[in-house]
Write a protein that binds this DNA or RNA. Structure first.
Lengths: 205, 205
DNA sequence: CGCATAGTTGACTACGCTCAACCCTGGTGG
DNA sequence: CCACCAGGGTTGAGCGTAGTCAACTATGCG
């Protein structure tokens, strides 16, 4: 996504169309059903994208952090199928899909970057799906921690937001997550200090 | 994926690199860990792509049917993270990723087609994830049937493979799926005849 | 005709969800 | 400086439901 991070370097046809938007914490950027005209890149902050399954039930699909894009689906769909809200005060770069598609032919490296990002997303969703297939909460959490640690190539995982939210991402209730962590600690798989968790040797698999 | 269906129409640089491969039912096309050098399109048959979660546990990630592509991740990753096997006798078109990437710049419509396909996949995975969040088996199955019916724009859904496999895709055991279907029929939501299921009025939501 | 596999049904178990109470922290205001 | 409050987090008790194991039936193929 390096390319989309600094619009100035892009062809005028595109960079002229780019906009910026500040989103306050809790504010929604777009809703399911809105016509999909824009693709976004997070400049600063954190955007949560989710589907409303059934009324009170919501499924977090991705958490776009700084420098990450989201809503690529807008490139080919009429309307958004998801809703996006800012978890904290954020600032996003807004790319009109028309302008993006128009310059794709001229900028193969942009197309490549977008595809690479999509592959990452597919991969992430696949991991989520794999995690959901682990029924035992403590096992699921452990595997999740392993993935996080592996991605950062270290054994310490720190959460920058309420465990409650993390629980939702894992398809667990906060209570279950709490119990799972307690059990993992008891079993000696992890040691924790608030939202800072260290994987012990035997947990690295 | 129309473009990738008939390699003859593609630039020689690409079409010369294309290969075809017959895969017998049960035969594996590639395994997790293999170096990822090729992207595939199903000509005829059915390919199952899955991750091995933990030994005996496998998570179906996608089911590529005729004219559908899979293993796009190969474009940007060193090795496959999944395994692909043929569920029935199949024939696939094999695109070396190097050749594909090389002509992307010349063929914006190819890049666009690939991106569109990836968006479809992301969408499909998101739906899977949403389904997993429905705990009650009968509700999950009902929602699944609704999606299938909606996609085909009709109320009849017919399965061309064992319910056992469908159960796995839904993250259920065959027994649970069986019970769920029985209950849905009892509740008057569906009527079924073997692997042919019709959604009743009240089920369309 | 018999074997293998798919599908169904039953009894039991296990584990996550729900609801509820409680602790702990940080922030606010008197 | 402390009382209060709100929200996150933890812990407990009971329930519901999907998984498991098992037996049985149905179907298709040699």
């Amino acid at each position: 996504m390096d390319l989309l991070l600094k619009p100035d370097g892009l062809p005028p046809a595109l960079s002229d169309a780019v906009m910026f938007r500040n989103v306050a914490a809790g504010q929604t950027l777009f809703q399911a059903g809105d016509s999909a005209l824009e693709l976004f890149v997070v400049e600063i902050g954190r955007i949560k994208v989710f589907r409303c399954a059934s009324e009170d039930r919501l499924v977090t699909l991705e958490l776009a952090r700084a420098h990450e894009s989201f809503a690529e689906a807008a490139l080919f769909l009429e309307t958004y199928a998801c809703t996006a809200i800012a978890e904290v005060d954020s600032r996003v770069i807004v790319y009109p899909t028309q302008a993006l598609l128009a310059v794709l032919g001229k900028l193969p490296e942009l197309a490549e970057a977008l595809m690479e990002r999509m592959v990452q997303k597919i991969q992430a969703l696949e991991v989520s799906l794999e995690l959901r297939d682990i029924r035992a909460a403590h096992r699921r959490v452990l595997q999740y921690l392993r993935y996080l640690a592996q991605a950062k190539n270290q054994r310490v995982v720190s959460f920058d937001r309420p465990l409650k939210d993390t629980a939702g991402e894992l398809g667990l209730t906060p209570e279950s997550l709490s119990r799972a962590l307690a059990r993992l600690e008891l079993d000696g798989m992890i040691t924790r200090e608030q939202r800072l968790i260290t994987l012990n040797d035997q947990a690295v698999a």
